[in-house]
């Protein structure tokens, strides 16, 4: 009986690994739906992300691919030079969305070892994380000092044709950093608007996103809409968690304060 149990465990483990091998690009690090226990979820400002057995990193000038087949020995497979001003990386299905200081670049990782650029969406020079779902990419643009020209906005980009991203709308913001699509609604995006705090926008009419919530008093940098309506917000004052059951009215659960 004990032996049978052992065999079952081995068998189950084997099946698990086999299924992992088959779908290298399926473990989307930014969805909560699967692999909750094995794969994590980062924010939109992240420069590291894992898809299946591959770790992708961006630094200020390149995209790197590491193979994690031997988890203790990541192997650098590929360095893709991207110029300068590379900032963030966000995985969505078989694509990587790379936020840069002059636009969004979309890479196909159907072959996970060799990311291939499928398109790019250019904008004025600014700092810009990007997130995406199947229909839209959302990028925030944060300008610098007033002397450098000051564009601060949310760009909503149609990516239904991934080879031809098209701007649908630009919504004015004050000092935007990270953003996150709500876990429980396809029509809601949370935006960290720097010193202006956290905002939520209803994007059911993508041509005219509507601000539906504004939480002031925080220097908000990044956000993770987690499962169970838990909203995690990273600020310069600390890391806050909110009950977002009603996204129009967040209730603070806790804060890990900066000391």
């Amino acid at each position: 009986m004990k032996n049978l149990r052992n065999y079952t465990i081995v068998l189950v483990t084997l099946v698990f690994f086999a299924s992992c091998e088959k779908e290298p690009a399926q473990g989307n690090a930014n969805t909560n739906s699967m692999n909750q226990a094995t794969l994590g979820e980062g924010g939109s400002m992240a420069q590291f992300t894992i898809l299946g057995n591959y770790l992708y990193t961006v630094d200020y000038k390149s995209l790197k691919v590491f193979h994690l087949a031997d988890p203790a020995n990541p192997e650098l497979l590929e360095t893709v030079n991207l110029g300068v001003g590379i900032e963030t990386i966000f995985p969505q299905n078989d694509h990587l969305f790379i936020g840069t200081q002059n636009g969004v670049r979309i890479y196909d990782v159907t072959n996970p070892r060799q990311p291939e650029q499928v398109s790019r969406f250019d904008h004025v020079t600014s700092c810009d994380p990007v997130v995406a779902n199947d229909e839209y990419a959302l990028a925030t643009l944060r300008g610098g000092t007033p002397c450098n020209g000051n564009v601060n906005q949310l760009d909503l980009i149609d990516i239904s044709d991934i080879t031809n991203p098209t701007l649908i709308s630009s919504t004015e913001l004050l000092n935007p950093y990270g953003l996150g699509l709500a876990e429980n609604s396809t029509d809601l995006v949370y935006i960290c608007d720097g010193y202006a705090g956290v905002k939520a926008f209803d994007i059911s009419n993508p041509e005219m996103p509507e601000q539906v919530m504004h939480l002031e008093g925080l220097d908000a940098i990044d956000v993770i809409p987690d499962t169970d309506n838990n909203l995690i917000v990273l600020t310069r004052q600390g890391v806050y968690q909110y009950d977002a059951t009603n996204p129009l009215e967040l209730t603070q659960k806790s804060v890990i304060s900066v000391e």
Binding site: G40, E41, G42, D222, I224, V239, S257, V258, E259
Partner: peptide
């Protein structure tokens, strides 16, 4: 915690 830069959710754990 001095200067938080990234947050990350891993199962029941929060990494900062």
């Amino acid at each position: 915690l001095e200067n938080p830069g990234r947050v990350y959710v891993y199962g029941e754990y929060l990494l900062i």
